[in-house]
Every structure is written in structure tokens, then in C-alpha cells.
Amino acid sequence: MISTASPQRAHYLAGLSLFVFILLWHGIASWLATPVLPEPIKVAEVLWSEIHNGDLLHHLGMTLFRLTLSFIIAMILGSALGILLGRTPAIDHFFDNWLIIFLNIPALVTIILCYVWFGLSEVAAILAVVVNKLPNVIVTLREGAKSLDKDLLEMAQSYRLSRKKILTQVIWPQLHPYFMAAARSGIALIWKIVLVVELLGRSDGMGFQLHLFFQLFDVASILAYTIAFITVIQVIEISVLKPLDHYGRRWQR
């Protein structure tokens, strides 16, 4: 039998599951008693001191800066190109192969090539992330642009709406769900790639720090940084992306 959970009960369950997770972690860690799996309390201490001495905030800030910049570039560029391809079959046919090639280049290869060709610079780092994310955005938005409602476009045409109105009031709301899908999967993809980019060719950021801790076998710091990062990404998801998505769907039944 399926029982329906009230919102409070759902929150309670979510909290409980997190608690059980930490308890389990603590149990295993104290049973194994090994430096490569520190207990939660140890990780919390490291997290606290790293926040306090400013290191974590600096590196987290650098990573978030790269993440935000490359995310914005990839979303704007990808949306524009996606809409262009979706609306112009000839261009779409021409570039389809290119897209497939770019979609299938491993992230690591683009990162290495960007560093080799453009040097170990900030620009190369951002470029590598953008190139990794861009094809995904293009493909998603292209699907959206292809499935635009012809009826509504005809309506707009027969009532002679201006180009601006057609774009903002008729086309964009239809692309919004595709844009949000690209944005949410984008954040998840980009932050993983940013770390690799930093690990390979930057002297700050989360990726750089994790690499450092790896060489020192400092698992507590690795976990502390991971927790900080997951928290920040979740906050972005809950405070920015979810409300945006919700706002875009307000008219739905």
C-alpha cells in the first residue's frame, strides 16, 4: 500500500536520511580507524579551520568565478546557435556533423588541447569549459526551436506582431523549459569539468587544492572541500534555478 507523505513528513524523512548517512559514515570510519577515512567530526573541524583561515573561500571563489563565467558564455552562445540551427534547416544539416564530433570529444582532450594551444592561462581554462558545455546547450535548444508551435507562430504573423514581440512573447516561453534543462544539466556538467581544468593547469581553485591534498593523502581536507562545494551548488540550484524554473511554469495547470 502506498501512503502519501505530507510536506512536513517529507522534510522530516529527508533530514532523517541525512542523519543516518552521517551516522553510517561515522560507524564505518571509527570501526576501520584509518587515516584515509576520517570521521565526520574530523572533517567538520578541517572545514571550519579552512573557512576560518580563508583558504577555502579563496579557492571556492575562484572555482565559482570560472564556473559562472563559462556557464554564462556557454548558455548565451549555445542558445543563440541552437535557435539558429533549429530554425534554419540548411545550416542545421551543414553543422550537424560538427556537433556530433564536438559532443563526442572527451572533456580531457579539449582541456589538454586548449592548454597546449593557448598556454596555461585563464582564457584557455574558461575556453576549455565552454567548448565542453556548448554542444550540449546547442543540441537541447535546437530541439526546442524545432518543436515550436506553428499555430502560435501563424497567429503572431497574422496579427503582425513585431519581431521583438514574437521572440520574447511567443518563441522564448516555448524555449524556456529547454533552456532550464540545459542550465541545470549544465551546472552539473560544468563544475566537474572546471575541477579537472584547474587540476591540470591552474594554481588556484578547488581542482588545484584537491590535487594538492591528493599528493599529501589528506582525505579529511578533500572531504571538507567536497562538502563545501556540494553545499554551494545545492544553494545555487535551490535559490536560483528552481525558482526560475517554477516561475517559467506558473501558467501551467
Binding site: D151, L152, E154, M155, S158, Y159, R160, Q169, V170, P173, W251, Q252
Partner: peptide
Amino acid sequence: IGYVFQNPRLLPWR
């Protein structure tokens, strides 16, 4: 030209 289509063709998000 005012056009009343067979389906109302209203923008659902407005």
C-alpha cells in the same frame, strides 16, 4: 486582419 482560428491559439503563458 483579425483571424479567429479553428483552435483559439492563445498563448498559454499569458
